[in-house]
């Protein structure tokens, strides 16, 4: 009966995952391997193709109420929602403007992704019964880790899918962007290439995401015990899931848990990049939601 309960939990979370996250790993890998049946993604590999790629995307405005107070940079983004002209100033060269527009569009997608992760978190049994302040803390500290994990299925060693799989942006192009933009994605590629060797499927990913959200060691939590209890149940469910989906992969559960340490370092480095951008990019602003998440994070 206990195993049946753990399987039911796994199914419940998987349904929430499918409901909230539009691009699954299965679909992303199909696109990347050319087996999706759809048209191949548009490839962005230089400034010219970036400009052409803009035509692929519906414009989406970035709210920027605090433009004059905080001038930061984009959060990392698992996709590109829209390239907008909202922040394209009249000064500077075309490449600079394009880069800014691109990273602002990353912000828009990040904000949407935070909303998706929040809805997923709310579907974890017991999560909404936690102290509301603790729910906020779990999201604040967990959400960038989740976004990084969710980028992995979109990536291979050569680049990443963006814009819900409609576009493939090459790693070399991302690397060629001006500092520190050009440095921001490399650590995520390095992590993702290693993470992808674990060959998790969407079911495995679902439970791993829930485990990350339910981390009882986030700074400032008021009531750790119920969080740890919830996490323990999800951990059991994950362990069972991995035994079923990867019977021959010994130590996969342990290997996966070790990734949580790497993730925290990547988030710390990411926050450092944001601080650098804050100094260098005077035309950038950070979405208020992303400001909330990044402020006093690490």
């Amino acid at each position: 009966p206990e195993a049946a309960d753990l399987r039911a939990l796994s199914r419940h979370l998987y349904e929430a995952y499918l409901k909230n996250f539009p691009l699954t790993k299965a679909k992303a890998r199909a696109i990347l391997s050319g087996k999706a049946g759809d048209k191949a993604p548009f490839v962005i590999h230089d400034m010219k193709s970036l400009m052409e790629g803009e035509q692929f995307i519906n414009c989406r405005q970035i709210p920027c109420q605090e433009h004059h107070q905080q001038q930061l940079a984009p959060a990392l983004a698992p996709g590109l929602a829209g390239l907008t002209e909202a922040h394209c100033g009249s000064d500077g060269n075309i490449s600079d403007e394009l880069e800014l527009r691109f990273f602002n569009s990353c912000q828009s997608r990040s904000v949407e992704a935070v909303r998706e992760v929040t809805e997923f978190a709310k579907s974890i049994p017991g999560f909404i019964d936690l102290d509301l302040n603790d729910q906020v803390t779990l999201l604040k500290y967990g959400v960038i880790e989740i976004l990084i994990i969710m980028m992995a299925p979109l990536m291979n060693k050569d680049g990443t899918l963006i814009s819900y799989g409609q576009i493939f942006m090459t790693r070399e192009f991302l690397k060629s962007l001006r500092k520190p933009f050009g440095q921001m994605m490399e650590p995520k590629f390095e992590f993702s290439v290693k993470f992808n060797t674990l060959e998790l499927d969407d079911n495995d990913m679902t439970l791993f995401l829930a485990v990350i959200i339910l981390s009882g060691d986030r700074p400032g939590l008021l009531n750790v015990k119920p969080i740890e209890r919830l996490q323990e149940t999800v951990l059991h469910s994950l362990e069972l899931q991995l035994k079923i989906s990867h019977p021959d992969s010994l130590q996969l559960f342990a290997k996966l848990l070790q990734k949580m340490t790497d993730l925290r370092q990547i988030v710390t480095d990411h926050v450092h990049f944001i601080q650098l951008l804050r100094k260098r990019e005077v035309d950038m602003c950070l979405h208020p939601l992303l400001q909330e998440i990044m402020k006093d994070l690490y």
Partner: peptide, 20 residues
Amino acid sequence: KEKHKILHQLLQNNTSPGDL
């Protein structure tokens, strides 16, 4: 609570992206 106003909103409502 003020420091994380939008996160609170997201947790308590089904805030649409447009609202953000």
